[in-house]
Amino acid sequence: MERGVVADFFFRISDSDLWYSFWHTPIAVGSAALSLILIVGAGFAPFIAPFNPFDLATLDLLDSNLPPTWQVGGDPRYWLGTDDQGRDILSAVLYGSRISLLVGFASVALSLVVGVGLGLVSGYMGGRVDAIIMRIADVQLSFPAILIALLVDGVVRNIMPKEVHEELALYVIIFAIAISGWVQYARTVRSSVMAEKVKEYVQAGQVIGLGAWAIMWRHILPNILGPVFVIATLHLALAIITEATLSFLGVGLPPTTPSLGTLIRIGNEYLFSGEWWITIFPGAALVLIALSVNLFGDWLRDAINPKLL
């Protein structure tokens, strides 16, 4: 019966319904494994990639626009071919995935912190605070996320000189995507909090005399994390797609730090002349990432709360 704290923790996880459902859903296991492989692969891009696509010294224009190895004219050194600069597509995709995932995780983390915080306060305090936060959310919801991100990005672009902007583009885009995504967390958390705060365990805390922060932080928050995780997972896929979209539209990351979206944008110009690999491989990587994360998120949603969208 007696177990150590750590052993107890793992026992609780392995005994939970969620864990059981996970191992008995092949799609969940598969998508989690795939996500993990992609994330690790992208994270260790500098160690895995055959070339460093940013090292101009290794680029050779003679190697430009080479098709994948298995096609006529392919070069065994470049498995997935090269682009117009002679960059190895495989390496570019690995490095690009790293940037895409970095933007995705960072913007999700930022929206989550802001959204959960505001949602908690809004739901628990109610009254005027709630009204103000929710009106802001309403105004923001009058615009789709992608438009907000475009706008934030566009404005920053106008305020800053071009050189400074290129340097800060990564942070700007993280901020832009994060700002466009907090509302969903805030609304979900708020409605969960409103459902939780009339429950008797919260009233018990009030009877003890606990302050609002203690009740929100220690009692309510741990009880509403399930839906937050679901949203965060699905939001990760969406954030990666949004970043790719912005970069594709030319308002995201510059070619000096190319994400998958930037690579697709560059390749798109060569699509009509038949060099499909420059676009398709980064596109496939993007879809693979989004698909595996979405599959996992889908399972998580069905397991935790199928009503979330």
Binding site: K199, E200, Y201, Q203, A204, V207, I208, G209, G211, H219, P222, N223
Partner: peptide, 27 residues
């Protein structure tokens, strides 16, 4: 203020109706 009220809060406690929602499931 909470400071004035808390000593009195301590002297009165409550047992609730619903055994399932009156305990924090995460603690």
């Amino acid at each position: 203020t909470a400071k004035e009220i808390n000593p009195w809060r301590r002297q009165m406690q409550m047992v609730f109706q619903d055994p399932f929602s009156s305990l924090n499931a995460r603690m």
